[in-house]
Structures are given as structure tokens and as C-alpha cells.
Amino acid sequence: MEKVLAVSEITLKRVKEPAFNVLFIIAAVFGYCVSEMEALSIHGEDATIGVILASDSGTPLLTGFVMIILMTMLIAVFSGATDIPRDVESRMVMFILSKPISRGEYVLGKYIGVVSTCLLFFILACISTVLAHLIKAGELYSLTVLVRQSYLLIAILPFVAMTMMISTFLSDISAMIVAAVYIMFALSMSAMSIFVDMLPKSLGVASYVHVIAYFFPNYFYFFNSFKIFGVVVLSLLVYALSLTVIFLAIGTLKFNRRDLIE
């Protein structure tokens, strides 16, 4: 585990770079700007997505925090998809792997490093949002609301793992493009797989769509309203962790077989 943490520390050290400093300032400003946005509800033309996302029961998400997680995901794509390919290109990976560190540990370490970077961004933006709300509205968010918003971080775990898995197959730019396309497909399939459940069973399309949808993580689940303690949260955690393990395992299998001197 120490070796994994050592790799993640190298990754995390990148936050000292000026680009990341700018990113964190953006996080703070962004958090401030979105602090007074209301609970997530989508009306009008996009009501269909709104209905899929928002349930009547449970604690709803605040739009501001959803914006923050979307920004965090953007960083996750950039950081997660480029980290390993850049190490491979710069031969940094050879240097690291010349130490008693396995390739699996390297991938895991990189993963933890990128997740930590995203975590830093998210927390910074959230603190800014909470403080801005305190200044503007003169009150703090209730603990329940804050806990629900913090659950958004669960979505980051499979998300980063997915981008890192793609990055073990491709170069940095290609990995970013493929990750973005995969996310778009995932969102479409997520909506479609829920939509087909509302269609008549005799049409027989649901099973085909579900099979295809299993190849894509359903990110809508993370944005649903639910009680902060219960089976749904537990299921969501298991869902995120199992997806993370699947993506990282595939990434590790590929990385173990990859010729790094190509």
C-alpha cells in the first residue's frame, strides 16, 4: 500500500503547478457564483430528464453542487485521461517501474492521485459555496442537505477509473476524446435504458437495450433524490465501487500487457 500511496503522492504533487493553482482559484470563484442556485429540477423541453433525475422522496440535489461536480468531472477527464499517457511518453513510467512497484500498483496509485486532485477541487468549491451562502443568506445549509451533496463525490470514483482505463489503451488526446464520447454514449444509454422500462413489455426491446446499457455506467443514479441513509445509498456505493474495480481491473490487465518502450 505504501508503494501505491507513493505513486499517488507523485501524481498529487502536480497540484503545486501554477495551472492547478489557477484551477483552485476558479473552483473558489465558481463555488461562490453557484451558491444560491435552487434545488435541481428541469422543466419544459427537458422535463423528461428532470423526471428521471428528481424523485419526490429524499433530499434533493442543489443545482450549484451539481455544477461543481460537473466541473470536477471535466477535470477528471483531463487529468485522468492524460496522466498515464504522459508518463509513458516522457518515459517517467519506466523510471517509476524500475523501482519495486508493479504495474498494478502504478495504475492504482495514479488513480488515487487523480481522485485526490478531484476531491481537492470539489471540497474547495463546496467550502466556497457554503461560505458564500452563509454570507448571502445569513445561514448555513442543513447537515442533511450537505451530506446529500457530498454523496456526489461517489460518482467521481467510477468516473476517474473509467477515464484511466481508457488512458491505458490510448495516447492522451485520443483518451480524452474517447472518454468524452464514451460519457456521451453512457448518458444516452442511461436515459434510454430507463425509458424502455416504460414501454410495453411485449415489444421485447427492453432486454436488448438493458444488455447494451450494462456496458455503460448509469450516471443518472448518482443524481437521483434519495434519503441520506438507506438501501439506495448503500446500493449506490456498491455500484460505484464495483464499477471502479471493473474499470481499474480492465485498465490493469491492459497495462500489464502493454509495451511501454514502443
Binding site: 424523485s55 430507463i194 443514479y221 437521483n224 446500493s235 465501487l241 474495480v245 471493473i246 490487465l253
Partner: peptide
């Protein structure tokens, strides 16, 4: 890694099924 994958897939399908039911139940009233 393959063994881990199989176990992870089991948990993935189970949790997905539960979350899908929850999402559909939430939509039922809408």
C-alpha cells in the same frame, strides 16, 4: 484480477438492479 472482475460484476449487476428499481419507482408517481 479476473477473479476480482467476476466478483465486481456480481456486485455491479445486483446494485444496478436495485438502483434501477428505485429510479423506476420514483418515476411511477410522476
Amino acid at each position: 484480477v479476473s477473479l476480482v472482475l467476476v466478483t465486481a460484476f456480481f456486485f455491479y449487476f445486483t446494485s444496478e438492479m436495485l438502483l434501477r428499481q428505485y429510479a423506476l419507482a420514483g418515476m411511477g408517481s410522476k
